[in-house]
Amino acid sequence: MLDTGDASYIKKLNRKILIEEIIKNRSLSRSTLARITGLNKATVSAQISGLLHENIVIEKSEGELVTRGRKPILLEINGDAGYSIGIDIDEDNINIIFTTLKGKPFHKMVLVKDSQLGQITNQLIDEINPIINKFNRIYQPIGLVGVGVGIHGIVNNKNDIIFTPNQQWSNINITEKLVEAFETTVSVDNNANFSVFAEQVYENNLADLFCITLHSGIGLGIINENKIYRGYQGFAGEIGHMIIESNGDFCACGNQGCWELYASEKILTTKLLERFPTLSLPDGIKELDQDETYHAILDDYLDYLAIGLNNVINIFNPEKIILNGSIINGNSPYISKIEDRLTSKINNYREISASRLGPDASALGGAASALKSFYGVNMINFNDYNYVKNIS
């Protein structure tokens, strides 16, 4: 006979399994849920009763008769019962996205950020709290379930901001202040970690997935066996500070020749605007297709980008790499140009692609991470919800 501890553990495990399947399948009956999970109908019924009581799940009758007799009762996540918030604090702006309990984005705002993190924290509280009060009245009875904050820098496993190269923030914890103000759970993580999580949740249901962010610097988010790989203290993925030029340009991190000094889109943008001051980015890129100077700048940039990618591929052997940058996302031919530069016979990967989530990836990942914590599950899969076309 199981003791109390074993019974409690199994009950929690069954709950996780059922919630994951309900999210993944969007809508399904109790009998289908029992069949695909392998749980007996009594267990499924007991668990669903609890989820209904908590307003996490709702029942709906199928619109059309499948067989004669009663219409089957379908279960789905009660999307409008609550919501989460994802926040991405980038170099110049703060991108904020609100999603329902089904992960559907329903409100987005962009703030021009202050320079100091303390001021930014107050700015977030002042701007977001009135909106939380508004949406708590609409998304009932659960309301706000959590907030995820993405930082472009090093964040440890305790949510402490250790260092941000661009802003020079170091050894700061903003979590407690945000928890007190928002009255919910708050997690802080590296923006690349949130970005790769969003890619898995919304676009690429893969157990092994890499996302390289190229916007203001270069970061790497790694999902390995369906878990974000963080390293010893949470610092993994800082490949923007991988040295690719011995005695190269000086970096704010303290090294010389860091990859992001040569291959971030910030660097590409700077070089393009120096040569083409009136260029509108990223859309204006297409107008330069016949310009030799543009191609010289681009070739130099892609050479450096490929050097770093070659290192990442040879070290990690990833299944899929997603590149996320404002220029590369809208210019898919860049991908083939990069792949043409990966000539090593030991390069081994399945696919490189541009992100469809774009600059919203980190904020979406923060919101999805808050949902994952709220549900207490190991995985969230919104791939079949077709949200991506409505994002941005």
Rank of each mutant, 00 (worst) to 15 (best):
D92I: 03
N25I: 14
N190F: 02
L51G: 13
F374E: 04
L206M: 07
N324H: 06
P130F: 05
I22E: 07
I19K: 11
E180A: 13
I313P: 00
S195H: 03
K271V: 13
D90K: 09
G254V: 14
N171I: 15
D303H: 06
N204W: 04
K389M: 05
S355T: 02
E225A: 06
I89D: 03
Y202P: 04
K266S: 14
D340A: 04
D160E: 11
G358S: 13
G217I: 11
G308K: 05
Y139H: 14
K345G: 11
L371W: 02
D126P: 00
W169H: 08
S369P: 02
V388M: 08
N204R: 06
K104Y: 03
K71S: 14
L371F: 07
V377D: 01
I85P: 08
N122H: 09
S187P: 00
N133Q: 06
V186I: 15
D189W: 02
Y387L: 07
G365N: 02
N14D: 10
F250G: 12
P165V: 09
S332F: 01
G376C: 03
N157Q: 09
E238T: 13
L2K: 14
T67G: 07
T67L: 14
N348Q: 15
I174Q: 10
E183Y: 03
R68Y: 11
T67V: 14
C211S: 13
T213C: 13
G217C: 15
F316R: 15
G248N: 09
N14F: 03
P141H: 10
N191R: 08
G221R: 07
Y294G: 11
S246K: 14
N247E: 13
Q200Y: 00
T37P: 00
D340P: 01
G82C: 12
Q168K: 12
C251A: 10
K227R: 15
G79C: 14
K227Y: 12
N317D: 05
M242Q: 04
S115Y: 00
E339T: 02
I56D: 02
E319Q: 11
D189C: 01
L272A: 05
W169K: 10
E59D: 05
G150E: 02
Q200H: 04
L273Q: 12
Y139I: 01
I97D: 02
G219N: 10
D384V: 02
K337C: 10
D208P: 05
N324V: 03
I172A: 15
P333D: 04
E183D: 08
V201I: 07
I222A: 12
I128W: 00
Y229M: 10
G150W: 00
S373L: 07
Y83I: 02
Y301R: 06
N78V: 11
R68N: 10
Y304A: 03
T43S: 12
I321V: 08
V196F: 04
Y387M: 13
I243V: 10
G376V: 01
N311G: 06
S369F: 01
I285P: 00
I89W: 09
S216P: 00
I338M: 06
K320N: 08
T213D: 05
E319M: 08
N348G: 05
I77M: 12
I17C: 08
N383W: 00
D92R: 03
E180L: 08
Y262C: 12
I174R: 14
Y229K: 14
D92Y: 01
I352W: 05
K16D: 06
S355K: 01
I161Y: 04
Y385E: 07
D291C: 11
N311T: 08
L39W: 00
I327G: 03
E127S: 15
